[in-house]
Design a protein around this nucleic acid. Structure first.
Lengths: 189, 189
DNA sequence: CGAAAGTATCTAGACAGTCGAGATTTTCGC
DNA sequence: GCGAAAATCTCGACTGTCTAGATACTTTCG
């Protein structure tokens, strides 16, 4: 499956996702295909989140926020609006509105920090927990079925690959963000 | 690196991303970590796109659209507004506005299809191509450096893994979308 | 040729996001 | 301790994208 000379047959897919690369050797093909698949995975994951959120009367941001709140609280380190905004890439004002929505819908609640009363701690409520579970459980079951097709040593390779790619992407993200000094003008240079 | 008993040391990360899973065996840990890393990768990729788009006076949707237009055209099958909207999950009106923006900015142009003049074909312009390249090139260089750390047979495993995960996720997406029959009411059940 | 279907655009309204000012609490220098 | 500065969250006005529904144009087919 997918030998080098399959490029012709898989032309549609190839052109759609790997056109910025050489595809001369088997290795080149692999690299192009993996890159393309990662890209598609990200897009599709977004779509799943969006569709699921919509069906529950939320938008995609709301769902991401809810997940972040749960992550933090289950870790024993509840998140604040400020940190949440950082995590999601939102301004402070926008976060306030976001939390208002989620609180009104009963997915989470605000708690004042007892030691530093400037801070507000976000904690999930019952409804929020149920929603997050409804999102993750079916995904987890699917994931398990896929993982079952791989030996332990193979998963080690995949793990090493994903952590390396993740670290690389985060470096890149930080570089891009650092270049924000001149944030573009629409007109009038 | 990351042996089973490292769970304690890596507790922060573990709790943040793998708390919905057993982590008893080395294999469980691997599965949880890979799942978490994929999730983070998706989020970070979004952030990169968002930051890059912002620096060039676009929003995230615009960049995605531009990439889709290029993908299609390089494939020799230029996309129409309708199919673009489907791809991005946007309504038709929204797509018109999106194309207006991108056309006004000189990133792409509208072409009437000569055989079926109901259709509009989207083609990228010079500026759009430059932008897409500016986005992908640095990413590709980073990716290549990561890939260099893996043998061919290891990349085969990664490739097999990614295609399997991708197929599984798309199945799930279709299931979720199919469940859209009752799209939720805010009040009044 | 006329009706129906397909495709894109336009218009109006809703809603999430940004920016900047303001309110409250804590931290720190003197 | 006291007052100024910092940290954190909230509020209000504005901007811009998205959705929905109506409209215009082109093709297909009886």
């Amino acid at each position: 499956m997918l030998r080098t000379r399959d490029v012709g047959r898989k032309r549609r897919d190839v052109a759609a996702h790997g056109m910025y690369r050489r595809r001369d050797t088997r290795r080149d093909v692999l690299i192009a295909e993996i890159t393309a698949e990662l890209r598609r995975y990200g897009v599709d994951a977004q779509h799943v989140g969006h569709a699921f959120a919509n069906q529950h009367g939320l938008n995609a941001t709301d769902l991401q926020a809810l997940i972040a709140v749960m992550d933090a609280e289950l870790l024993g380190d509840p998140i604040t609006p400020g940190r949440l905004g950082e995590h999601l890439g939102l301004s402070s004002g926008s976060v306030t509105a976001l939390i208002d929505r989620l609180e009104r819908a009963g997915h989470l609640r605000r708690d004042r920090d007892t030691t530093d009363r400037r801070k507000v701690l976000l904690r999930y409520a019952q409804r929020g927990a149920e929603l997050a579970m409804g999102f993750f459980r079916p995904l987890g079951e699917r994931t398990d079925r896929v993982m079952a097709g791989f030996r332990d040593d193979e998963l080690e390779v995949v793990y090493r690959f994903m952590t390396a790619m993740g670290a690389s992407l985060r470096e890149h993200r930080d570089e891009v963000r650092a270049a924000r000094t001149e944030p573009h003008r629409r007109r009038a240079e």
